[in-house]
């Protein structure tokens, strides 16, 4: 049994079959990539895992518990964090505050009326947030207004916000989209480093084959809402069906 078990998931938008009969099993402590052409349903699948969408059919089990019907914050509390395709950060707040919020969520749960404590006096969480910023090389930017940063930095910040919660499963929706080559390589290194340091499972949606083949241990190819194949990177590279569907080669 994998840490994440998706069985027979289907999702329609009006008449459009965005997903049909998706089966996916992500093993604990692996990096599992989901690739596929634009519109294949990758983001839709991710949305079904985090409570943003509810699938029309099928089941999604995380650690032997169903996530279906749970709210996004409840699913996060179960140990799933998500990086969005366009970075979702707290734009009006500073970089440090952005990382502090997930620290509070992890410690205090979905709600706590801590109206008199003083953020600055939460020494432990402050240290934790600072350590995380150092890990992603953003410590010097901690007082920056986060909305004013580059897109690459916003993504990195979002990743830090997810990682600081030490999730069991990290979902990444195209984490290097819109990044320069150097930033992409940094992100690969960062993800590799995280993988070595912690017990973490990652499911990553990616367009960039360089990223996929540097990180993934298993790859699922999605086309028109259904998985085509699931295999190791070596086998996927040469798979004729994949070349046809994904790389757009007719023969």
């Amino acid at each position: 049994m994998g840490i994440l078990e998706v069985k027979g998931v289907g999702k329609n938008f009006g008449g459009l079959k965005a997903l049909s009969d998706v089966n996916l099993s992500v093993q604990e402590n692996t990096v599992h990539a989901i690739i596929g052409p634009n519109g294949a349903g990758k983001s839709t699948l991710l949305n079904c895992l985090v409570g943003k969408l509810i699938p029309d059919t099928g089941s999604v089990m995380f650690n032997n518990q169903s996530v279906l019907g749970r709210k996004p914050h409840e699913i996060n509390q179960m140990g799933i964090s998500r990086v969005f395709q366009t970075p979702e950060i707290f734009g009006d707040l500073t970089v440090l505050e952005n990382v502090l919020i997930p620290c509070f969520a992890k410690r205090d749960g979905a709600f706590r009326l801590h109206a008199f404590e003083g953020v600055r006096r939460e020494k432990e969480l402050m240290d934790k947030a600072m350590q995380m910023l150092e890990d992603v090389n953003m410590a010097d930017k901690r007082h920056m207004h986060s909305a004013s940063m580059s897109r690459g930095d916003k993504r990195r910040l979002e990743m830090a916000m997810c990682l600081v919660q030490e999730p069991k499963l990290l979902l990444l929706d195209e984490p290097t989209a819109g990044m320069a080559r150097a930033d992409t390589n940094n992100t690969i290194d960062l993800l590799k480093e995280i993988k070595e340091k912690r017990d973490i499972t990652m499911a990553i949606i990616e367009h960039d084959m360089h990223v996929v083949f540097s990180l993934a241990e298993r790859i699922t190819v999605l086309a028109q809402g259904t998985p085509l194949v699931e295999d190791t990177p070596e086998n996927i590279k040469g798979h004729p069906k994949v070349r046809e569907a994904y790389l757009g080669e007719a023969h």
Partner: peptide
């Protein structure tokens, strides 16, 4: 306070707050 920080977080990005485990 942390409570005030969460309120400011609500103002700037409620989606992120929910996906961060806060209601």
């Amino acid at each position: 306070s942390p409570f005030g920080l969460m309120l400011r977080a609500v103002k700037t990005n409620q989606t992120r707050l929910n996906y961060t485990g806060m209601n």
